[in-house]
Design a protein around this nucleic acid. Sequence first.
DNA 1: GCCCCATTTGTAAGCGCTTACATTTAGAAT
DNA 2: ATTCTAAATGTAAGCGCTTACAAATGGGGC
Lengths: 350, 350
Amino acid sequence: MELKPPKSDLPTLEDVARAAGVSTATVSRSLNSPDQVSERTRQRVMATVRALRYSPNFGARALAAKRTNTYGAVIPTMENAIFARGLEAFQKVLVANGATMLVASSSYDPAIEEDQIRTMIARGADGILLIGAERDPEIYDFLKERHIPVVIAWSGTGVSALSCVGFDNQAAARELAARAIGLGHRRIAFISAYTENNDRARDRVAGARAALEAAGLDPSAMPVLETKYSIQCGRDAFVELMRESPRPTLVMCGNDVLAAGAMRAAHELGLKVPADVSITGFDDIELATVIQPALTTVHVPHRQMGGLAAEVLLAQVRDNSAAQQVNLETYIVERASLAAPGFQPTVAAE
Amino acid sequence: MELKPPKSDLPTLEDVARAAGVSTATVSRSLNSPDQVSERTRQRVMATVRALRYSPNFGARALAAKRTNTYGAVIPTMENAIFARGLEAFQKVLVANGATMLVASSSYDPAIEEDQIRTMIARGADGILLIGAERDPEIYDFLKERHIPVVIAWSGTGVSALSCVGFDNQAAARELAARAIGLGHRRIAFISAYTENNDRARDRVAGARAALEAAGLDPSAMPVLETKYSIQCGRDAFVELMRESPRPTLVMCGNDVLAAGAMRAAHELGLKVPADVSITGFDDIELATVIQPALTTVHVPHRQMGGLAAEVLLAQVRDNSAAQQVNLETYIVERASLAAPGFQPTVAAE
DNA sequence: GCCCCATTTGTAAGCGCTTACATTTAGAAT
DNA sequence: ATTCTAAATGTAAGCGCTTACAAATGGGGC
């Protein structure tokens, strides 16, 4: 505490003003709204800025301008490739617009998430990216009260009056399930991420149920196992599901990671995919193409979502534009892990 | 610009002071150094803070205290699971200490990286996390000039006088290669990430060479293909390597992602792993356990690294402690993809 | 009851910037 | 020339907080 080094004698706006022979206001304007300054003056100021290696003090600027040019992102975890992708894109767009990104992860815990959101706001975030629409209304009130623009990603329709950039989880899952039913599957099981506090996971399960119902099947007959987001958990869940008799002919998974675990378990149980059992995923991350057989899954445009979220947020903050609701398209990627039940591949495995 | 909503009438320190019947200094102290305030006063102040839902203004605080409690992390990309893991851990430790994380990615481009570093500093980062030690010395000068603590992760010995939390990439790769040589491998090929501006990648290749040399083999005879970080690239590189005659009996990969691609290519070429060709990875991400056969690789404690990096950085900033150099242990994870070289396959790929 | 010192509290000076408002300057129109 | 207007620049008032320093308070020890 005592030894704090002099952080120190960095040039200030005033130093630049003095050196350039203008007022601080002119320097400030040259930096922030160049077109309010004459060409000649601006040149001179900028040259001085460079000569002095001046860099504006962030705190002072934030204090005076009431804006930080910093945006927060609160996501469940960076270790999930889908969020990592989205974040990367979000950040790129931010940087391209001269802004920076604050990140925090909640580990899927609503209490932690709330805390992180408050911290971001206290840190002066001009806007904030949130995943999924489901959370304590009090948080939305808090955000509204402070006039902080929010964009919700990964979920389609969000809270009204809030921007969102997402897709229809339920419709996507329904479509995939319908496709499987069309192929002849009747006994379908589902491995889902925990649905509590997770509207995306819940919607995906609901989508499968809806397809069943539409096909005149009993949706409540579909076994659903909820588990954590990890390969190991997908594996365990699959083993559990295969204890049933008769066995399901298709195991749908709420995401690709769980599906990878399921695939793994299938191999260990000596089950051929898709001959003995079909497996589907959701998200279409790289993993889906690496496992054997390659995974039939739903492609979600994560990068696009992250990039668009940033744009929407920036527009709200900078141009005071209205909240927007953007719904992105998803599509089924047919690979090898889903086929008609009992399907014999022309070339035997191994 | 014009319509900016009133961000507005949030309570200030002064409001709290007035309401609690004390001076602003006392409120500030209650918040920042509670033990300088009497128990009774503090209680009263805190109650008022809660009642008014007061939250300190970030800019003002940063301006007055010359500290933001914000730390920057500049990484190549969040889409790489190893960095995502490290970052997640880094962030967790930061949050546990009341700090927040600013993130930027450089896409492995030194110019972008430099830019991001400068931006972070301009944003008032109190300290900064960097990946790998190799960069323009000018950047280090800049950082030193501003007295910004830096911690370098992922590389063992870094720039002197800078903290680093890493591991010995070269030794780890050497050990793995030595193990393979002990198994009987003589023709080894290497698929590496681009080594330009990437000391980690370079060290890994160097490690393999060192093992060859130590075994009396010619290190320059080892084919090395450099490529981008992606499964597809690993696949292409592997195919390329298999054109050689005689074929290598072992393809070492600079990371697990490349190895996954190689594995994929091996299957496509009808090559059995490890009978026809062994494959090794590096990093030990989850992917390594999903592919068939499971990957023999080097385990790197990414999370630990990220967490420690945060601790080192915090210590430097808060306690003004000296720079530390921490070297973490790695170890070989033996799975199925590496075995003694089998007979030379005569069946050609199509 | 008095003195001294440690503890607690208050006073007020900035921190470095933005911006409303005032002033000056320079063209254009007459 | 003169007047008017728009563009360019300057002045200076904060923004909300921290902290050096000063002042007040409260116990012991005598």
